[in-house]
Amino acid sequence: MNVFRLLGDISHLLAIIILLLKIWKTRSCAGISGRSQVLFAVVYTARYLDLFTSYISAYNSIMKLVFLAASYGTIYLMFIKFKASYDHNHDTFRIEFLILPCVLLSLLINHEFSPLEILWTFSIYLESVAILPQLFMVSKTGEAESITSHYLFALGSYRALYILNWIYRYYAESHYDVIAIVAGIVQTVLYCDFFYLYITKGIYGQ
């Protein structure tokens, strides 16, 4: 565990908490893409199935459980509790165009052709593009609420920090994972336009 990895995890956790609190406090999920949230639930479920097969550390297990619980909690709030506020007219990104290529790619390019490894690979590929329905929704409606922007900034920063962690690990431990690195870079690049707007508006805006 290095500082970049820890900051990345904190940023990820922060993003999820911001989203849950926003929905809970405003009793509304307006502006949030349910499709992205469903994709994230698929990502965590596929990746964290190893919770039952390989124990790493208490930190690792607890974080996995928190991400799973928060993700399903968000889905519950969006699709059941505050269903009336869900903005589905603007949430129209076709997620099969993301899921099917990721399934195919994970079957073709993986570290080992075994069920859990393929699920892990699939989750890495899908995570890299899972935010697209949300970014599409923001561009469609013109602007995101500031709290939604903070959520997106924290969520985008998480993978960017992981890239720094991989650079560090490459030099310090001679360790690298090509699949995670390439997907992580794709994921971070997708946020670049948003990062630019967030930072310039944050500094010069109002």
């Binding site: 565990m1 990895r5 995890d9 990820h12 190893d50 390989s54 790493i56 550390s57 690792n60 974080m63 996995k64 991400f67 570290h111 080992e112 490894e117 892990w120 992981y162 962690n165 431990e173 360790h175 994972d177 995670a180």
Partner: peptide
């Protein structure tokens, strides 16, 4: 094949 040190990442 992924090692335990890779599996540590979330």
């Amino acid at each position: 094949k992924r090692t335990k040190s890779t599996k540590d990442e979330l």
